[in-house]
């Protein structure tokens, strides 16, 4: 049986992990290698690095960060944030990333998904979608630029379009659930799972191990992603996996 994946997400700014990562056992809480190793030891199934560097000229640092992490950590690495071209994708994959997550750039330029898939294979192209429920239109609306800018696009339709264009996986964040720690947006993932056949990573809302149990019992998504609850050791990956095993969800 394919196991359900638990994925921590790290925000990286100019080579340092940001947004209050606080591992009690780490001396340097900003070092991506130390943090990635700690997560590997905990049994994380994959890591997502999100480049939040604001300036374009500092972006090359991300390639360097990926290169040093990939020398020490032997699990799948996905890198997202500010990737705009096949050349950007090439640099990061060559540095040791396994998958590239495209978000705003894919919305603005869907041909980038196809170009990436044709060059590196669909398995290397993740389309990340940030979405928010739009009550007046009764739909999940796509947002870009880190969730700040709504666009006139239905997230379910966009997911289908992205997969048709060549995306091998979707990383879908519910902006409504994100930060609430009240559980994943199950309705969103049910609709997505019915619409596409590629693996889906659910993101936004995880607050407890139970939230992951509910996610995997109630939907067919492949993976659950979380950031702050893992960073602050509010919840550890072994705790999540123990609870999932008790609930008979297959995990590594």
């Amino acid at each position: 049986m394919l196991t359900k994946r638990i994925i921590p997400c790290l925000d990286v700014d100019q080579g340092r992990v940001k947004k209050g990562v606080h591992f009690t056992q780490l001396k340097d809480v900003g070092d991506p290698v130390a943090i990635a190793k700690a997560y590997e030891a905990q049994g994380a199934d994959e890591l997502v690095f999100l480049d939040i560097t604001a300036t374009t000229d500092a972006r090359q640092t991300m390639t360097q960060t990926v290169a040093v992490v990939a020398e020490q950590v032997f699990m799948p690495l996905t890198v997202g944030g500010g990737i705009r071209s096949v050349a950007d994708m090439h640099d990061l994959l060559r540095a040791g990333a396994d998958k590239i997550a495209l978000n705003s750039a894919a919305v603005k330029q869907p041909a980038l998904i196809t170009a990436g898939a044709e060059t590196f294979g669909s398995q290397a192209v993740v389309v990340a979608i940030d979405t928010r429920w739009q009550a007046e239109r009764q739909r999940y609306q796509v947002t870009i630029n880190g969730g700040r800018a709504p666009v006139d696009l239905d997230a379910i339709q966009w997911a289908k379009q992205a997969v048709d264009a060549g995306a091998g996986e979707l990383l879908v964040t519910s902006m409504d659930a994100d930060g609430t720690q009240e559980g994943f947006d199950l309705a969103l993932y049910r609709q997505l799972s019915a619409a596409v056949t590629v693996p889906i990573i659910a993101s936004g809302g995880a607050g407890s191990a139970e939230d992951f149990v509910i996610l995997f019992k109630e939907t067919t998504v492949s993976a659950g992603l979380a950031a702050s609850i893992f960073h602050f050791c509010q919840l550890t990956i072994p705790e999540v996996k123990t609870v999932l095993k008790q609930a008979r969800v297959t995990v590594r």
Binding site: L2, T3, R5, E169, P199, T220
Partner: peptide
């Protein structure tokens, strides 16, 4: 082969 509950690619940790 594609069937219900089997997403393609087969991606992740399997035994």
């Amino acid at each position: 082969p594609t069937k219900a509950g089997i997403s393609i690619p087969h991606m992740g940790w399997n035994t």
